[in-house]
């Protein structure tokens, strides 16, 4: 297989921007509801950040601000050196470099697995079909489902669909991968196959922003843990101290609940 399309490639390219993602004084409101309140976060290249927190704490909204699926009212989001504004051209530029994996997979049901993976490379990257298919086979092999390439998403299990979604995002050769609760919609026996795929990706040096409640995964791959509550970042720490001696009382309460299960 083509060596030029290794997973880790994005991490060491483009040295001009110091951070992969830079979030400065970010505020967002839904009507009167202050959903993100003064969020600051800098993600270095190759860094893996796991964001956790109770539901409604703004974790998903934060991720969605990074690829402009949500707008924000105050502050700055800078992705790979590009400041996100209302400029649609810029937004699409950023989205090309940021892969996103959703809780509910969001595969295109009318397209085969192969077509799901090649759609964006062909029509956004203007890649020849042959090349796009070769890359798709490469990543489908990495997520260990090359044999499903000609099936439709509805014919796959949830775990397989989520792995296709990961492969689909990787086919764009992104510099950053974001995961929004990728295992929450899965049956328990399928969680592991998706997490294994994500661990392999982490080991390849991909910059990752992951919203998840899978604390085992977080311990294994995270460089830093981010705990959010009520739209604010409450605590940022390396996983070891984060889990063994959380500083904030709300972190302690949350971890107490989630780890007690």
């Amino acid at each position: 297989m083509n060596d030029a399309i290794g997973i880790g490639e994005g991490a060491d390219a483009a040295p001009e921007a110091p951070y992969a993602v830079e979030i400065v004084d970010l505020h967002k409101w839904y009507g009167d509801f202050h959903v993100l309140n003064d969020v600051n976060l800098r993600v270095a290249r190759g860094e893996r950040i796991v964001i956790c927190g109770p539901s409604g704490s703004g974790k998903s909204t934060l991720l969605r601000c990074v690829n402009a699926l949500e707008t924000y009212q105050r502050g700055q989001v800078i992705v790979d050196g590009v400041l996100l504004t209302h400029d649609l051209k810029r937004i699409d530029e950023v989205r090309r470099e940021v892969g996103m994996v959703f809780q509910h997979f969001n595969l295109f049901p009318h397209l085969t697995v192969m077509e799901n993976c090649t759609l964006a490379p062909i029509h956004v990257r203007k890649m020849p079909r042959k090349e796009a298919e070769a890359i798709a086979v490469h990543y489908l092999t990495r997520v260990r489902i090359p044999e499903q390439a000609n099936k439709y998403p509805a014919q796959l299990s949830g775990g397989q669909q989520q792995r296709v979604a990961i492969a689909r995002a990787l086919c764009m050769n992104p510099k950053i991968m974001m995961f929004d609760e990728p295992t929450s919609a899965l049956d328990p026996e399928m969680v592991k196959e998706v997490l294994d795929t994500m661990v392999a990706l982490a080991l390849d040096g991909m910059t990752m922003l992951v919203v998840t409640h899978e604390m085992g995964f977080a311990r294994e791959v995270a460089n830093r843990m981010v705990f959010m509550d009520e739209g604010q970042i409450i605590e940022i720490n390396a996983p070891q101290p984060f889990f063994s001696s959380p500083q904030h009382e709300r972190t302690r309460a949350f971890l107490g609940q989630i780890l007690a299960r």
């Binding site: 690829n67 402009a68 699926l69 649609l88 699409d92 530029e93 950023v94 989205r95 090309r96 940021v98 892969g99 996103m100 959703f102 509910h104 969001n106 595969l107 295109f108 397209l111 759609l119 964006a120 029509h123 956004v124 689909r168 995002a169 764009m172």
Partner: peptide, 19 residues
Amino acid sequence: GQYEAADALGLGYWTGLRF
């Protein structure tokens, strides 16, 4: 989610619409 997935891939309005 279909619109969001298309957006997240950077397809843009017309390409996402068409495919």
